[in-house]
């Protein structure tokens, strides 16, 4: 006969949990601007499977970030709805964590303190559990040595790594990433493409990733969705059928990127805003 062994909460907390299925139903959203009413999203529908990596690509102002904010619960749609595992999204919550273009790290806390922030809002953990969990994620992003560093001492890439650890720590089912690497240099970005693919595989998250960088989208996404602006709509869908981990510089990937780029140029007049 087996004895039931009580596991510590930290171990439980670190378990890989089921990622969410997202269902976006006819979501519309408009904004008042100086030039009048702008339809940022026009009856956008989208299904994202469990543990799928979906990239939203489009020119600035095509509504892709707005859609991400609506999925996060930070903004409300004018009409339509977002379901996560069949339940309507009513507001922001740690099931769906967001990584922004700016790291948005809290300067009054050190690196560890930032990763602990979301964990402290989980009541069922002891402080030791929280530290164990936070340290696990700092190791996952390769920043163990910097746990007591101040935020301003970190490079841009390290800051985004901390932001990633902070977003992963409360064990969300969905990661929403809003151009998280746009402000980084190419070399740092390449390292992070490797990291994010490795972490996505080991932690099994559903990821919605917004970018205007076509190559980045082809490198990371299972699917790449093209947005067109005025009004914001999903125009085309590409399934990227390449083995992982993918190298951003590979030739196969380049041919995908070229195809996506060609479609995108056909959709938008602001082609100079599209990175390759």
């Amino acid at each position: 006969m087996h004895h039931t062994v009580a596991r510590s909460s930290a171990t439980e907390e670190l378990e890989v949990i089921a990622p969410s299925k997202l269902s976006i139903d006819e979501v519309s959203k408009s904004f008042q601007s100086a030039t009048g009413n702008v339809l940022a999203l026009d009856r956008v529908s989208l299904q994202v499977a469990e543990a799928e990596f979906v990239c939203l690509v489009g020119a600035s102002g095509c509504g892709k970030s707005t859609l991400l904010n609506i999925i996060a619960g930070l903004e409300k749609p004018d009409s339509g709805r977002v379901l996560a595992d069949g339940k309507p999204v009513a507001g922001p919550g740690r099931e769906r964590l967001v990584m922004f273009q700016e790291p948005a790290l809290f300067p009054w806390l050190d690196v560890l303190g930032n990763v602990l922030f979301g964990l402290k809002l989980k009541a069922n953990l002891t402080n030791k559990d929280r530290r164990d969990v936070a340290k696990y994620y700092l190791e996952l992003v390769g920043l163990t040595r910097f746990e007591h560093a101040n935020i301003h001492e970190l490079s841009g890439g390290m800051k985004q790594r901390v932001a990633l650890a902070r977003a992963l720590a409360p064990n969300p089912r969905v990661l929403l990433m809003d151009e998280p690497f746009a402000a980084l240099d190419a070399l740092t970005r390449e390292q992070l493409y490797g990291d994010i693919q490795r972490i996505w595989k080991s932690r099994r998250k559903t990821i919605v990733f917004v970018t205007h960088n076509v190559r980045e989208a082809a490198c990371l996404g299972d699917r790449v969705l093209l947005f067109s602006p005025h009004p914001g709509r999903i125009r085309e869908e590409f399934v990227v059928d390449l083995p992982r981990p993918r190298d951003i510089n590979s030739v196969d990937l380049a041919s995908y990127a070229t195809r996506i780029m060609r479609s995108l140029k056909g959709l938008t007049h602001d082609s100079e805003e599209i990175g390759e």
């Binding site: 922001p92 967001v98 922004f100 948005a104 809290f106 922030f117 809002l121 409360p170």
Partner: peptide
């Protein structure tokens, strides 16, 4: 206080008094 701090904290489940004491005031 940069609005992004508030948004980041919101997604991590902070609100109300917690938001004021742990985010707005320290910021």
């Amino acid at each position: 206080v940069p609005p992004i701090f508030r948004r980041a904290a919101l997604t991590m489940g902070s609100k109300g008094l917690h938001m004021w004491l742990k985010v707005i005031l320290p910021a």
